[in-house]
């Protein structure tokens, strides 16, 4: 898989907050069809890295490249249109609205349909088709009419994924999708993500090691803003540097 041109790539990303190096020369790639997990202890700079990839933070130096195109200068919304489908660590959903309306928002964004003022979004066939397909994909069809605030935590995480799906992204960027999930929910979501990689590769930041080892084709370990190792699950498990820095020296 390493020979193909990467879908998403960071090149020498660096970002400092004062004396703190939150991101230190990070170069990673996301190949077609793979799940690339980023793990690391708390405060390693995982969220900062995601924010730079998605456009919420500007790196001090370095570039973000999507499909061979430098997107470092683009806004969050332009990156979304270019093909980044992001999910949030803390669900960012419209809690007052129904599940279907949330998914419709994604469809509106995907089709650049925000400048329509007359026809009901709910009655616009092409918007509904996109939204309903995404809900079906994550298994939320039955909850379409449920108000988001009344959804279980797990279902909210699924909706996050559905909203990213509506964009038909080139790459998924998922920030701790398993956060706060119970074992059963975590397992179901793991199955869902496993199937998603065929649609687009996933850059997965995750704390849930079971999920990471089950899903990831490659794992990169981020410590103090630096990537200290990249490799298969087996290689990461057996890496001495990783053990010392992250998993804690078992011996």
């Amino acid at each position: 898989m390493s020979d193909a041109a990467p879908i998403l790539e960071t090149r020498h990303l660096s970002k400092s907050f004062g004396a703190l190096k939150a991101t230190d020369d990070v170069s990673i790639t996301l190949q077609p069809g793979e799940i690339h997990a980023i793990i690391g202890p708390n405060g390693a700079g995982k969220s900062t890295l995601i924010q730079q990839i998605c456009g919420a933070l500007r790196p001090d130096t370095g570039n973000v490249v999507l499909d061979g195109r430098d997107i470092s200068g683009l806004s969050t919304q332009a990156r979304a249109r270019a093909g980044l489908g992001r999910t949030f660590q803390v669900s960012q959903l419209c809690m007052e609205d129904s599940v279907l309306e949330n998914a419709l928002l994604g469809a509106v964004g995907a089709q650049g349909a925000a400048w329509r003022f007359w026809r009901r979004a709910l009655e616009t066939a092409e918007l509904r088709a996109t939204a309903e397909a995404a809900l079906a994909r994550v298994g939320l069809s039955d909850e379409a009419a449920t108000r988001c605030a009344n959804l279980s935590h797990g279902a909210r995480r699924q909706l996050e994924v559905a909203m990213a799906l509506t964009l038909r992204p080139r790459a998924f960027i998922m920030d701790e999708p398993m956060a706060g999930m119970g074992a059963a929910g975590s397992k179901r979501l793991t199955g869902l993500l496993d199937g998603l990689r065929q649609e687009a590769p996933i850059l997965l930041v995750e704390h849930d090691m079971d999920a990471v080892f089950a899903l990831a084709d490659r794992i990169s370990v981020l410590v103090y803003g630096k990537i200290i190792a990249t490799g298969s699950a087996q290689e990461i498990r057996s890496s001495r540097a990783v053990r010392e820095a992250y998993l804690g020296d078992a011996e």
Binding site: Q77, L105, V108, G109, A110, A114
Partner: peptide, 27 residues
């Protein structure tokens, strides 16, 4: 009409989460 149309949907979402709206590719 406006509040049920896509524009109203986006405006309504904006009140609840600006980050969400931008992530959906909307300005």
């Amino acid at each position: 009409r406006l509040q049920r149309a896509p524009f109203g949907l986006a405006l309504n979402a904006l009140r609840q989460s600006e980050a969400r709206v931008a992530t959906m590719g909307l300005n």
